[in-house]
Design a protein around this nucleic acid. Structure first.
Length: 289
DNA sequence: CGAATTTGACCGGCGC
DNA sequence: GCGCCGGTCAAATTCG
């Protein structure tokens, strides 16, 4: 007899059910609300996600467009995401694909982020000219804005909290986590957006030198398609899977829809049937015990 | 009782 | 030099 373990983007379904009762909330809305990439990186959006030609995600024109934007500019903003998605508006306009946050809130957030990025770029320039010998090398960082009622989202790795600080101009604190694996120096910061408290901003720094402990003990298809040791690993595989479900369930269509369903089953999971009725809730993982 | 979290102290970078 | 700020440390406390 198979035992089912249900996970939604790494967050256990039962946890989310406890919080919202009959209507489970969606912990992740979309991963490309904001994506920050190191300047020297030539990664496009698809490469960032580890999407290859054989992936069903490859067929979504919206994502290809975003990928090219990201490649040219090294960063993609909320506004650009909106523009791209609006030019490929699905047939049902009332379905809010990006998030349930109002445009005002998201624009505020966008402006803030752009401001921060510019500030950072300026300070980087200054410190470069000032210092001949660079002391501290910053690991690549990736930030995600996610709609969640839980601050610390389960992502398959084990983290130890080592600090918490009050965030300027925000009632919500920022938490600092470090990977519990001693040989691994990956860190992450988690904070809640004060413009929209339903949004959690998670920033990863560095790459794991080991595989995910959760994935190691559950023989899932996610585990088998991981890029071990890479920061685009299991987290992105989750995101990738989620993204496809989201794109599909909100009415976006891939450019080669005839072949998509077969591709999906081979690339993501043969055990999880795709049903549009389930929407985001179909992101489940079956594990054998 | 060991592991994880909390929280005030501390540190280094930066602007004034 | 001083104060602010983001990030980290580590002793105390809580949790399982």
């Amino acid at each position: 007899m198979e035992k089912k373990e249900i996970m939604m983007m790494g967050l256990k379904m039962e946890d989310s059910l406890n919080i919202n009762g009959s209507s489970p909330f969606i912990p992740f809305s979309t991963m490309f609300d904001f994506c920050e990439v190191e300047k020297n990186s030539s990664l496009g959006f698809m490469e960032l996600l580890g999407v290859q030609n054989s992936d069903p995600l490859f067929d979504f024109p919206q994502l290809s467009t975003m990928s090219s934007i990201l490649k040219d500019q090294q960063e993609i903003t909320l506004k650009e995401c909106f523009e791209v998605l609006n030019t490929h508006q699905p047939s049902t306009p009332n379905s809010s694909f990006i998030s349930s946050a109002s445009n005002e809130v998201v624009n505020d957030e966008h402006n803030k982020i752009v401001e921060q990025l510019h500030e950072k770029q300026n300070t980087n320039k200054k410190s470069k000219t000032k210092k001949t010998n660079e002391k501290r090398k910053r690991e690549p960082r990736f930030a995600f804005m996610t709609k969640s009622e839980v601050d610390h989202l389960e992502d398959g790795y084990r983290w130890r909290k080592y600090g918490q600080k009050a965030v300027k101009n925000s009632p919500f604190p920022r938490s600092y986590y470090r990977c519990t694996n001693t040989s691994c120096n990956v860190k992450k910061r988690v904070e809640r957006s004060f413009t929209d408290p339903s949004i959690v901003v998670t920033t990863y720094e560095g790459k794991h030198t080991h595989s995910s402990p959760v994935m190691a003990r559950t023989s899932t298809n996610f585990g088998s398609i991981m890029h071990g040791g890479n920061y685009v690993s299991q987290y992105y595989q989750h995101q990738k899977h989620q993204l496809f479900n989201t794109m599909s369930s909100f009415g976006f269509s891939s450019s080669s829809s005839s072949t998509t369903s077969s591709k999906v089953s081979s690339t993501f999971s043969q055990e999880v049937p795709f049903s549009r009725d389930n929407g985001l809730l179909q992101d489940i993982v079956y594990s054998h015990i």
